[in-house]
Amino acid sequence: MNNIKKNRLLDQVFKFWGIACTFLGLILLTIFIGSIFVDGIQRIDWDFITSLPSRKAERAGIFTALMGSVWILVLTTIIALPVGIAAAIYLEEYAKESKMASLLEVNISNLAGVPSIIYGLLGLEVFVRILEMGASILAGSFTLALLILPIVIVSTRESIKAVPKSIRDASYALGASKWQTISQQLLPASFGGILTGIILALSRAVGETAPLIVIGALAYVPFAPASPLDEFSVLPIQIFNWISRPQHGFEVNAAAAIIILLLITFVMNGIAVYFRNRWQSKLK
């Protein structure tokens, strides 16, 4: 009897401890976002989004940085997507048992943990210097693609793994080849999960600063980039630059730019959640 009471008490204690822990993170995040909003929301208007950078805080806008971020996002997707998915398919479906595969697996997991600035150094040497891309959008995109590749590979593998074995069995039993089974059953069935992983990886990429600074992305670019070989800035670098200035006006600008950046990542995560739910309900 005594024991049961003790267990119940423990149960309750742990429950409240869990609630407190959950809310700790949420509350801190709310405070942070709240204060940013208070600082920056009145600065956001159409002009702020469409204006070029300026020495005067009240005239400066995020247009070039925003366009830089969009360019980077699109090119990074184009580069990382086919490579990451193909690598995941190879590891999951073709190379399952070999020693080489387990070696690759360990390495990919390790790569996911490498600090992003190291990727910046790699990008600087390989893309900017050896391949002579310069401090261009292309070099930045390749660097970020490398950075998110491990995440794309791991999440794609998980999604493919989650397709029930019975689907593979059915496909093989009807005389499908491996590639037919992959392309017509496994990929469509795991599409939602793969997409979710990719969007989450990209929303990480859009917030990366360090590797892009290392490869030579600029804080001040007078015009929006027009081709992949142009110089560029991105939102996080713009924010970083503004915050380091002494004038109060730029602090407000930084807060406003942070709101835009948060908005972009929230929207991307929202899309990821939407697709996940949609494909889950489709599979049921």
Binding site: S166, I167, S171, Q185
Partner: peptide, 10 residues
């Protein structure tokens, strides 16, 4: 082959 649990494709 027909399997133990019905396994139609989604």
């Amino acid at each position: 082959m027909v399997f133990q649990k019905p396994n139609p494709f989604p």
